[in-house]
Amino acid sequence: MKSVFLSTGVWICLFLLPYPVLGATTPPEAGGVLPEIILEAPSDPELMKYLGLKAAQDFTIPQIKAEIVIIEIFSMYCPHCQKEAPTVNALFTKITNDAKLKDKLKLVGIGVGNSGFEIDVFRKNYKITFPLFADGDFKIHKMIGEVRTPYFIGVKINPDRTHRIIYSKLGGIKDAGKFLDMLRRLSEK
């Protein structure tokens, strides 16, 4: 009987072993925090200025100078992302044309499984002016639960650089104005 009791502990360990791995592949949840997404500083000084980065070194999302950061997870190869690109551009224009919003709300895109070359193709094709980052080896994609694309994450950044996810959803934003209103409501909660 003792051996059965002893082995029960072993079984529990064997059952629980996969959990930390599975936990790491869960999509980010509203109310939670982001995994440590490390991005390479852009070489374009305008984009550096937009992100509020002082040094040309790797950075994380909460280091972006903003109160809210919208992250678009996309792929150059994804038909929905291609279709969604003009709407995301409209969202960016709406933010940058609003004097009260433009310094508070920043937009970045992460191209999962895309090389730098492929990101540039997407940028030029759809005339995208907000920063796009390549995740060629799917490293970031794995950290955020290998979500399908497009996927949007809204993050509220506090003055002390702590942060909270306020939006995390699969699918396009569809309407730039409604999406902004919804983010505003969520950030006030």
Binding site: S75, Y77, H80, V112, G113, F138, H141, E146, G171
Partner: peptide, 8 residues
């Protein structure tokens, strides 16, 4: 759901 597959 690997490969960064499109929602389409």
């Amino acid at each position: 759901s690997a490969f960064g597959l499109s929602e389409v």
